[in-house]
Write a protein that binds this DNA or RNA. Sequence first.
DNA 1: TTGTATGCGTTATCAT
DNA 2: ATGATAACGCATACAA
Lengths: 400, 400
Amino acid sequence: MRSRRVYSCGCCTRIPRRNEGKPAIRPPSPRVPSLSTPLEAPPSRRERRGLSCSLVGTSRRSTTGRVTISDIAERAGVSIGAVSFALNGRKGVSDETRERVLRVADELGWAPSTAARSLAEAKTDTFGLVLARDPHNLGVESFYMEFFAGLEIELSKRGYSLLLQVVGSPDDALATLRKWQRTRRVDGVVLTDLVDGDQRAAFAASSGLPAVVVGDPSIAGGLTSVWTDDATSMREAVRHLAGLGHRRIARVAGLGSLAHTRIRDDAFAEETAALGIASELLRTDYTPEAGERVTREALTGEQPPTALIYDNDVMAVAGLTVAMELGLGVPSEVSIIAWDDSVLCEHTLPKLTALSHDVVAFGSHVARRLFDLVEGAAPEAFLDSTPRLVLRGSTGTASI
Amino acid sequence: MRSRRVYSCGCCTRIPRRNEGKPAIRPPSPRVPSLSTPLEAPPSRRERRGLSCSLVGTSRRSTTGRVTISDIAERAGVSIGAVSFALNGRKGVSDETRERVLRVADELGWAPSTAARSLAEAKTDTFGLVLARDPHNLGVESFYMEFFAGLEIELSKRGYSLLLQVVGSPDDALATLRKWQRTRRVDGVVLTDLVDGDQRAAFAASSGLPAVVVGDPSIAGGLTSVWTDDATSMREAVRHLAGLGHRRIARVAGLGSLAHTRIRDDAFAEETAALGIASELLRTDYTPEAGERVTREALTGEQPPTALIYDNDVMAVAGLTVAMELGLGVPSEVSIIAWDDSVLCEHTLPKLTALSHDVVAFGSHVARRLFDLVEGAAPEAFLDSTPRLVLRGSTGTASI
DNA sequence: TTGTATGCGTTATCAT
DNA sequence: ATGATAACGCATACAA
């Protein structure tokens, strides 16, 4: 049954279709209920565009292939000004006219051209987000997908869209931002994964591009920021472990270049010092490979920690695996805490105690602040809910 | 130190900033190198727009807050037609003029307005992707983030952007597609997670919206499709287990409404039947909860399977955990295979045997096909590389 | 209340 | 080679 001829094309295999030889025409769109009269003027550059629409009788113009407000105006027997007013729900037209225009617009399946509206209104109804991370590592972190979803909840309420760009380096990210700003591509942007003295934040601030920073106000450079109090969360985690009798705790940290990593670093150092606990800082790049490696090194060294706090959930899972491989009981001999709680944490054995945060709500919050901003609000710092410790099975009394 | 006054605002806490009382003005953009002469005409509705730019001497127009080609034309002492030609590298201007125009454009930091270009060219340089899944489950699946990254690699090469929309239901997804089509919001779309008789595919086909289906040609409704041969992969997995002596295999399947799920279902049923193996189909919704539940039921029932094939990686991890909880050795007593390989599969104990696929490359492939399509290519079906079985530690000789 | 004219920034045509 | 000028589709100030 799988015997059709198959062509190789380098990256893939090509399966010929039934309409193989036919010209590359797509089926004609089910255009608006076409009336009778043909159009008279020879189409000029409209040729390049969509199919010309034989809409109305003596249409002197506006046959671009899509239905426009002049089509509506003609058909409804009013001016385009009246149509625009009626469509946008402004006063200046009689109720009767308005209703007729609305009906005709509906009949014709009219919708405003994004480009034309954007040009006239000098806004795009679009927010941008540029992501600079290695795609292969990006995939395993649940944060972004949930964050996107949260953004979208708020955006869709107002008919806004999200423009996403995934780039390879921070420089590329900045370039994208510059391009967006100069081409008026978006109304505002969301900035994530900031570093100290972040160039993107600096650019947004100086260029006037509305931007909300996802992260601590201290690194937002005066921009609006929405942040989570990671320092408090970290202290809670440390105190929890201290209360269980742990005296040697390791922190498996993410990229040191990221600002929020350092904030967690500091809180970890301060709280362990305050409690007289031996602390150890293990630097990683968020990948499970790194999480596994540093965990193995720490656990097999002399004076191994009895508890580890990981900067994300995937590394925590990797760490748990290492402990098991080494024959160490969790939590009887080693306790584990994950940051960025996800469903993953609930499906390991034991389940992972984690610092949990509603990322979807967080995303919605960020979107609301960006709307405030483009509507003229002054930059402020907004504290989102603090990630709280959810106790599960991976933390317990220290063995010694 | 953390003693600033804090306001509660319902969803969050508000931290007052230093510039609390000041009006909501943003720092003036570092506009183009401003010359001397002030502008004369009183700004009309430009007020609403960006800052008015005191660009040129006796500029009779074009002070919209951003630099436009008429600014360039004026400053370079040529017409805007010449500027456009020079900028777009077409012949019709002398080399000398071209160079001067380019230099001025660069000085002024000019970039074309997305909206204006889009309106004039009747294209948006944007592809759209609408996602209809529960965000909380979406997060843990690495597929989409990698897929996005793959798309972007190809898009960025050509200056295209990705418009992303996350919605709650298939109906909303269709509505978004309709809106995009009618408002000319995108040049094309990528369709994922198709179901039998998919409305989105039908809409794209009938409306002429260029679309590439991510999935089997059989459900693409004549649209261009890029697919992976899941049936072959499934058969390979079954044969691998059969070769290890397994006689009872369960398939932990994803949503039955999705077309590719059924393709895997069928291949699983056919291959097990052909090999005379007892098979069992367990339906889930991709969540680890469901994966855990059905695994537990299967493993604790009478005549439990000795091997399970999961439809994603997260459920496989959950299944592994269940086996451990039940005291079943993996792979000594139960073998496990995951679909959608991810880094996660390499950091469990044992590591998971998985059907692996380069999703980033897959995304790039899809993007290339969409470009072909908008450039006039005829719809075809393209077979991407077939997910191949990567043997790790979770599959072994059957215990019975 | 309704129609007219113009701006928005770019591309493309058609005259010089 | 160059310079006006007309689309593109929508919004809106202003005149009727």
